[in-house]
Structure formats: C-alpha cells, structure tokens
Amino acid sequence: MRILFLGSGPFGIPALRKLHSLRTDLQVATVPDAHHGRKRTLRPSPIKAEAQSLGLEVFECQRLRGKAGREILEQSAAQLIITADIRLILGSRFLEGPQHGCFNLHGSLLPRWRGAAPVVRALLAGDEQLGVTLYRMVAALDAGPMVGSRSWTAPTEVTAEEAEAHLALLAAELLEQHLEALERGDAPQTQQPEEGITLAPKVEKSEGWARWDGPASFVDRQVRALKPWPRTRSTVLRHCAGGQRDELILDQVRQIDGMPGAIPGTVLEVSNHQIVVACGQGAIAIERLQRIGKNSMTVQQLQLGMPFQAGDRFEGEDSR
C-alpha cells in the first residue's frame, strides 16, 4: 500500500522514521523551503530534511485545497495519508480522496486543545496530563473520530520544546500500534465527546510579555510554555541605570514561598544565584536571563555588566 506522509515541523520526524522502518512504499509532502534568520537563508522544513536523508521522494505544496490538493493526490497515488504538524488546511475533497482516509497525529488528548498550539496551551493552563491522539481527519478542526491516544504525566519543570519532543515519540509508537488496522480499513473509530472541547490557537509574540500582576505559578508556566518561541520577556528599570529601561528574556525561573508582599514586578532580593521578583500572588526566583541577541546567562554572569538591587522593577509591555 502506498502511504503519503504530510508534515512540516519536527513533531512529525519520529513518526516519519517509524513509517520508513516499517514500510517501503512511502512518500512525503511538505511545505516549500522558507527563508530564515537575518540573512534570509533558504532552508527546507524539518520534515523535508529528514525525508531527504532517508532517501524518500518529496513533494512540495503551499496548499492542499482545490487543484493543488488534487495534484498531490494524483502524483502520489496515495491510498492512505498520515499527517503530523503539516500547518496547511486540507480541503474536504482532499480528505475524501485516499481509499483508506487521512489520519492525523495531534499533540493533545482530544477533544482538549484542538488547534495549532496544543502543547503550549496545555502548559500555560497547567495541565498535568499531556498526550497525543490519532484521529481520522474531517473538515472541522481536529474534530474527527479518534483511533487511539497515549497520555503522559509531564515533569513539573518541562518546557514546551521538551514536551513536544517526548510527545512526538509517543505519536510514533501510537502510529505503529494502529498502522495495520489503518491499512486494512478497520481501525476502531470513536466519536469525540462534546464535553471538554477547548481550543489551542496559534501563539502570538505579544503573549511573551511576563504577567507580573498574575500568580507566580503563571509566570513559571509562561517561561516553560513559551520556550523556544516567543520566549517570556520583561522590561527592567534599574536604579543604577538612571531610569533607562532594558529588555530581558526570562530563561529559567522557579516559584518560591514565604516572601513578603510587594507591588508586582518589584525586586525583593538579589544574590549571585537569583533575583527574587514579586508577583500578584507569590514570587518568582529568576535563575537565568538572556539579553536580546545574546546567550543565556546566570544571574552572577549578568550582574557583571547589569547589576541589580532590591527595589528595581520588572515591568510588562504596557510600561515601555
């Protein structure tokens, strides 16, 4: 049976590798090469780079609706389509084209977190259980009948990057478990419940401003959920800088208890190991920071060129 794998981001790489190890009649479709960085260097998608290293035939497409979608189906002659992080909208006719259907590996326990950023939204919300779901695609967003799922209790300090890497491995295992049934056309499919539906919209850069007026637990979740993009940022106002505001990225933080209350964003304590900042509820100990365009540094390293003291202020976007 000919299988077409659709993907773009790194989430789909373990599943692609698994398919390549299990089946020989495999092709890949992905988005065209894109410009990256300040030099606008043209780079392939992670899935294209991986497919080429495996020696697989690769199709490129900017859309999978209408004529473009029909052309991919005709060129590939796919009987079964597996997708993971494709970042394109699949038209209804495209979904109906393959004999055995189109199935997606999604980074959440559906129906929770339907949409483009399920892992980030789950971490921001403080979900204890993360997971992946294999489901048959329909025209509605991530709403098709489920074939199977895998859950995972993530460590409390996990970042979005780390969580996605682990969930990608679970997705590959889930696909292997159900692959033969998908090929036979008799994979069990259970309709998603109407209760418990939440949406996971695309993350915007503006969401990266630290919410000092909220609880310390949320700032901690921000730092982990928004890593590697867009990162959690804050402006800082230091007494010794004469009123100049700088922008910093919070790279590593932890919640601490037992600190006195203060205006959110106020620096309460400074040592070589941490800068303690008041939040709307509780406080955050910042252990690593990053100046824009620079590498991550410990508090001790940062203070060699940017000293802090109690009473300095970390502020949000509105204070710029």
Rank of each mutant, 00 (worst) to 15 (best):
H178E: 09
T153W: 09
S234C: 05
L182R: 04
A181G: 09
Q189G: 02
T232I: 06
T156A: 15
P145K: 06
R150I: 03
E195Y: 12
L174V: 00
L109F: 03
R150G: 01
V203F: 00
L134D: 09
P188F: 06
E173L: 10
V158D: 01
V203H: 01
P201N: 05
T153F: 10
A216I: 01
E162G: 15
F218R: 04
E173Y: 01
W113G: 00
D142T: 10
R224G: 02
A168Y: 06
E162V: 00
A160P: 00
W229A: 11
P201D: 05
R136D: 10
L182F: 08
F218M: 10
R121C: 06
A140F: 08
A181K: 13
P201F: 01
L95A: 05
Q222V: 12
W113S: 00
L167T: 02
L134N: 08
A154M: 11
H239T: 12
L110V: 04
A168F: 03
R114E: 11
T159K: 07
A210C: 12
V147Y: 07
V147N: 08
A116C: 11
E180K: 07
A160R: 10
S234A: 13
T198L: 13
A143E: 14
Q177G: 08
K205V: 14
A125D: 14
H106S: 08
L199Q: 13
A181Q: 15
P155Y: 01
P118G: 01
R121M: 12
H100S: 11
V119I: 15
G107R: 07
A125M: 07
E180Q: 15
P228K: 02
M137F: 05
W212R: 07
M137P: 09
A163S: 00
P111A: 02
L130N: 06
A116W: 09
T156Q: 13
P155M: 03
P145I: 11
A200Q: 01
G214R: 11
V219H: 06
S234E: 07
R211S: 11
D142Y: 05
E204C: 07
G144A: 10
G126R: 04
G144R: 06
T153N: 12
R238I: 00
G148K: 02
V120K: 04
I197D: 11
